[in-house]
Design a protein around this nucleic acid. Sequence first.
DNA 1: TTCTAGGTTCATTTTTCCTTGAACTCAGTT
DNA 2: AACTGAGTTCAAGGAAAAATGAACCTAGAA
Lengths: 186, 186
Amino acid sequence: MPSGRIITTASITLATNGGFEQECVSFFAEVVQLFGVPKSVGQIYGLLYASPEPLGFPDIVERLDISKGSASQGLQLLRSLGAINEAERSSSLSNLSSEIKREARGVAYEPELSLRQLVTGVLRERIAPMATTGTDRLKRLKELAENSPANNKFYLGRAKQLETWRKRFTTVMPLLTALLGPKKKR
Amino acid sequence: MPSGRIITTASITLATNGGFEQECVSFFAEVVQLFGVPKSVGQIYGLLYASPEPLGFPDIVERLDISKGSASQGLQLLRSLGAINEAERSSSLSNLSSEIKREARGVAYEPELSLRQLVTGVLRERIAPMATTGTDRLKRLKELAENSPANNKFYLGRAKQLETWRKRFTTVMPLLTALLGPKKKR
DNA sequence: TTCTAGGTTCATTTTTCCTTGAACTCAGTT
DNA sequence: AACTGAGTTCAAGGAAAAATGAACCTAGAA
């Protein structure tokens, strides 16, 4: 497979995928915005999702026409969410022509397809932190309730209820991910 | 109870609740922002949550020091989410002094306390719409996949997977609300 | 009828968040 | 050693969302 092998599928697929890619990009861009995630991040995931081949950093910048900065930050976020994975690449490049080597440089990504994995990532990075700092604030709230000169009983009741809300939340979250699919094979 | 009865608990409670209210307001302001809801909306809910008495429109404007516009829009959103309820008020006002009548005018609100109810509201107003428009977009995506000249099988596979994601999502959502508490008594 | 206070609407301003682009680092090539 | 392209960082600009305030509507009180 010397010269027939084309790694940079970018321009080729672009010409022949009949709009699927474009639609996919804007679809995911829209979806993620509902979760408070920047549009460009959704675009990147959508692009990877619509690509039969893993794509590298330069592909993403070029095909989405976004800045390197956006691409870099977007990929960072997607990595931290576990929403993309690095694709394998042949490690012995020495015997390839320099033109092909050029294309094979750097890391290529493919989208994570496990729904459970994706949801877990969002929960871990977005919701869990809230639960943590929330616990501190609840403690403080309870103290304030105890020290409140008037309506002591009322405030204590409220503080107590917030605590039970938090507990229910933290017990339900793992259940939710379990419902969304099997644990990821490692 | 002519002059002793104080309905506008605003200034009084403010002076005597020892910071509980303030902490509550900023707590909810923070929480709701994680769900993409404006800060002021969280503040309003927090204020109501920290108040032993139902509060009216003017109380909210005054104690949070926000504009009437913000208060109005915030209350609208909270109503649409089912996160607040109108409190009962004595309907025969004629025998009260005019000073008290002044305070009793308009609607007063208290916070919805059922966690299930709150989550259901968010799901209904924020997530469900996505599922609806999402269905259309998936249909379109499938068509594009079918018409794609190259990699037909790959694109069809992706379209199919999106469809199963959507299905799983719509089946899991009701379960989630069920886990969060008993159905609200009507 | 007129007055007042509760409440809504919407154009304008403010704030917040996202994107950009330039400067930089680092690894592999020549 | 010098070069090239991948990738990061961050100050600054720009776009989108939220808060404001003025004009307006309404119902009950005087």
